[in-house]
């Protein structure tokens, strides 16, 4: 296992301030210290060459986990071994083998062309000239940014900049890559290009990739396994498409009709999720799909018929809701 995490927790201290100047003055003399548990007792393992996704809402603890695994933060308690090292000991040999890309944080020099920052990274990671030239040529070719190497970073688009950030992070060919929201704010084409690149890189180099993202498509397209985290705890770990197995097993039936029908006509077969003109979507129990399908085809003017799983996003949303409800009751 390239990453082993056992009961890892991280808490942050903070304080609250009520509205207004009076409370600011009060705060000068007394502050009530509060503690937020950002990550709570999480444990998991990641194998070499795996591409794993961390999913979760804002403030779930995804980035904090990544920061602990990359040695940026010390945990409050628990243990982790990454590439055989304790990350927060920040050993040089450990740092030489991994890279982190944070969608919201840049490492390129803003006022200089990207090639100057890339060369600096070459020296920082002690990359040989020949290896540097070949890696640079390969990565710029793959990400289609060869012509932009000499352009000032501040003049690049967000997508181009993120591609350069990726190159800067990969110039030393790391075994392990942490990607924190690498596609945040990018247009669909740039997102797709970066996804394709990551997939290719993972396959070619057998690099382990740990990815956090708000975009379901990132994780769905790239990762066989996902860890879903909410309120600092792991709520699901495994194949993303099995999230729905946790619930009451529903199926979605999508219909295209030749004549209009009423809401009541459809409700006889299951829960009506959508009815717009000649298109309708029904949610039905998985165990009764066969019978209900037969009845729909017999009784409604159907010209097209599709049975689908409940979208993964909805399963995850249900997962979060269930967790939050649990907390509210606790």
């Amino acid at each position: 296992m390239i990453i082993q995490v056992e009961h890892l927790s991280k808490s942050f201290d903070y304080y609250k301030k009520e509205l207004g100047l009076k409370n600011s003055i009060k705060n000068l003399f007394h502050r009530e210290k509060l503690t937020k548990a950002a990550v709570r007792e999480i444990s998991f393992e990641i194998a070499e060459g795996e591409m794993i996704g961390f999913l979760g809402p804002n403030g779930a603890g995804k980035t904090t986990t990544l920061k602990m695994l990359s040695g940026i933060l010390h945990p409050t308690s628990g243990q982790a071994h990454v590439l055989g090292y304790v990350p927060w000991e920040r050993k040089k040999a450990f740092k030489m083998q991994f890279a982190i890309v944070m969608g919201q944080k840049a490492q390129l020099w803003w006022d200089l062309p990207a090639n100057e920052s890339l060369y600096l990274n070459k020296c920082i990671y002690e990359v040989e000239d020949k290896a540097y030239q070949s890696t640079l040529a390969e990565l710029t070719e793959l990400l289609d940014v060869k012509d932009l190497l000499n352009v000032q970073v501040r003049r690049l688009s967000l997508g181009e900049r993120m591609k350069m950030e990726l190159i800067a992070a990969l110039i030393h060919r790391p075994k392990l890559i942490f990607l924190d929201e690498p596609t945040i704010g990018l247009d669909i084409l740039s997102q797709k290009k970066i996804r394709e690149f990551l997939k290719y890189y993972n396959q070619q180099r057998h690099a382990t990739i740990v990815l956090t993202s708000h975009y379901m498509a990132d994780v769905e397209n790239l990762c066989k396994r996902a860890i879903i985290i909410n309120q600092g705890q792991i709520v699901f770990e495994g194949d993303l498409h099995r999230v729905n197995d946790l619930f009451a097993q529903s199926k979605i039936i999508k219909l295209q009709l030749s004549n209009t029908v009423t809401h009541a006509d459809l409700a006889a077969f299951g829960e009506v999720r959508e009815l717009t003109g000649l298109n309708a979507t029904l949610q039905v129990p998985r165990t009764q799909v066969k019978e209900i399908s037969k009845a729909i085809l017999d009784q409604l003017p159907v010209i097209d018929f599709n049975i689908e799983d409940v979208p993964v996003e909805e399963g995850i949303a249900l997962l979060f809701q269930r967790r939050e409800a649990g907390h509210a009751l606790a």
């Binding site: 920061k67 940026i72 920040r90 030489m96 982190i100 944070m102 490492q107 920082i124 990671y125």
Partner: peptide
């Protein structure tokens, strides 16, 4: 602002 993050991961003296 948390801008030491990337620096902390580099194999040189932070």
């Amino acid at each position: 602002d948390g801008d030491l993050d990337i620096i902390l991961t580099k194999p040189v003296s932070v």
